[in-house]
Design a binder for these strands. Structure first.
Lengths: 332, 332
DNA sequence: CATGCTCATGGAAACGATTCCATCATGTTT
DNA sequence: AAACATGATGGAATCGTTTCCATGAGCATG
């Protein structure tokens, strides 16, 4: 029924040369011009496509790069993945995608699966502590981290947005508008941002105004609603991601808080709907696609380089969700 | 430096059995209880993980399933991919992701790449005509199509949303509100929907009100803006996807058309931001995640089944972007 | 002319699993 | 007791490639 795939052996036979020669020609090794020509002709005639299976086994590594993101559903990671795909495509490398759900256990499981597949180059948005990665990195794996680094490890190749600057800009902008009680609504693994937040806000920082959600929408909403409910005195919120921003808008609406009159809101990550929102959301734009692309470049370029981290700029995009502090949100 | 991975041979040696026995134990073949126990113990002690490389070569197929979507950045496909990942994970199968950009050529290229990788099970949102798939399907590939089928091929396994019913419901809803000049703003490969649109609208259909964009945001905006500009007499738009809906909202805003007073809008695909939009968008919800999950189930369940297509229900979610036809959008 | 060097070349050995097949021990049937 | 069925077991072949190594030809140098 379905005839065998044509193998390198078939080509060798048809061209009257040895398999080694065919392999050499096809992978750019040395060969005499006429042999090369003949092999190439025969190969196209037979529509030969080398099987990655054989090659992978021999070289003890599957080509291809693994990509581990918390949630493909999140626009930010979607764009990041898109960047990775773009770069991988131009290099002809397949991308194996896994969703970790921001769960270290699942992350470890996926890493294991990738290793089993022979994948030795990965890009990850790490969820957990560095311990998961310690043993893995030692096996000769080339890993590039994107968007954040494993907790407790600063010396790994990574492509990051300039979170510090982003937070600083946002907070300065808010304080400049007169806001004093500013909340940070964070997600998993945002130590950098929180640190920058604390640092920028200085003595104004109020520990109760730092709240964190897990990755899910529900969790984000719960955190946002809880925050707004318990602390009616806050006048501005910085949301550390588009899911959290969405949750903040929803929660504010539910509590009849008008944005920006009653509550100013800045969201990390510029998404298409930020403009469609009422009011349009002021955001800190991050180059998600670039992050992915650069990470892929790094991981393809090979491992031993030590560009300890690429830092990509963020940009404050002012729209309509921030206003000078008013007195409208009166104490009871 | 980095010692060799432990192979099946190591396990066999350490357990004092042959490699065949180890393989059998590990893949659930027959073995005496004590042998099984011993092998299992040794395997865990040595932290043995079978290499997919060896297995794949032997069985002449890489495990893993290929997933081809037009654009991971699009929330719909993001959710679909998430569904696929969820199912694949529970089966322990890796997923190789590719973005086709709704370009048949790129699609063909990616299929080629997947075949080269030994992938023999794929899920695709096909961009092009069936011709791309004809030869491929003949090679013994198990393919399941999702969201739409290759043009000109109805007899392939597919998981689809019930587009006909969705369109019918939406159009009926709009005509029930008094609308007569209803436009359809479509994307690539939406023949089904257009047919249903024509069918439902009957004599009211106006060919000029059927406009199509390619996959990109720019193209979507251009189409939407062109439509609204050229035909100020239309009172309702049905957008065939969240990108198109977004474009319609933007274009309407640009032209100072108030939704829903001047223009009623229904969008295919319920996305989180539909609720945040001003006004909240009335949508036809599609179970994107389910589509992906079911497609993965189908492709994992194996090929020869003939469930010609799974049809998943859509649901009209009424929010605030539709109103009874008014007279406000006056002729000049 | 002999020696050595550079190439192109093909045979064969990996790579790490699965699986066919022959072997052997055990238990069952006549 | 002989013949036979059953089941566990290990050796070896296989998958399709890359790559090591030996061979031989051609050529320049001494």
């Amino acid at each position: 029924m379905s005839m065998r795939r044509t193998t390198i052996k078939d080509v060798a036979e048809a061209a009257g040369v040895g398999v080694a020669t065919v392999s050499r020609v096809l992978s750019g090794g040395s060969a005499s011009p006429e042999t090369r020509e003949r092999v190439l002709t025969v190969a196209t005639q037979l529509d030969y496509r080398p099987s990655a299976l054989g090659r992978n086994l021999r070289q003890r590594r599957s080509g291809g790069i693994g990509l581990l993101v918390p949630d493909v559903t999140d626009s930010f990671y979607g764009r990041l993945a898109d960047g990775v795909l773009a770069c991988a495509r131009s290099a002809g490398e397949p991308v194996i995608l896994g969703a970790t759900g921001d769960d270290p256990e699942r992350e470890a499981e996926m890493v294991g699966m990738l290793l089993e597949q022979g994948v030795d180059r990965m890009i990850a948005i790490p969820s957990g502590s560095g311990e998961i990665w310690e043993p893995t990195l030692r096996t000769g794996l080339t890993a590039v981290f994107a968007h954040r680094v494993p907790a407790g490890r600063g010396d790994v190749p990574a492509v990051l947005a300039d979170d510090r600057a982003g937070v600083r800009t946002a907070v300065d902008y808010l304080t400049g508008l007169g806001h004093r009680r500013i909340a940070y609504l964070g997600g998993p693994g945002q130590e950098q941002r929180v640190a920058a937040f604390r640092e920028t806000l200085g003595p104004l920082v109020d520990e109760e105004l730092l709240v964190f959600a897990r990755g899910s929408r529900d969790s984000a909403y719960a955190a946002a609603a809880g925050l707004l409910q318990h602390r009616p005195d806050l006048t501005a919120v910085l949301a550390g991601g588009n899911l959290l921003g969405e949750a903040a808008v929803l929660a504010a609406r539910e509590l009849d808080l008008r944005v920006p009159r009653d509550l100013s809101l800045i969201m990390f990550d510029d998404v298409p709907w930020a403009e469609l929102c009422a009011p349009p959301l002021t955001v800190i734009a991050q180059p998600a696609q670039d992050i992915g692309y650069r990470a892929a470049e790094l991981v393809l370029r090979g491992g031993a380089r030590r560009p300890r981290g690429v830092l990509l700029p963020t940009e404050l995009v002012v729209r309509g969700s921030c206003a000078p502090r008013g007195t409208s949100r009166s104490p009871r």
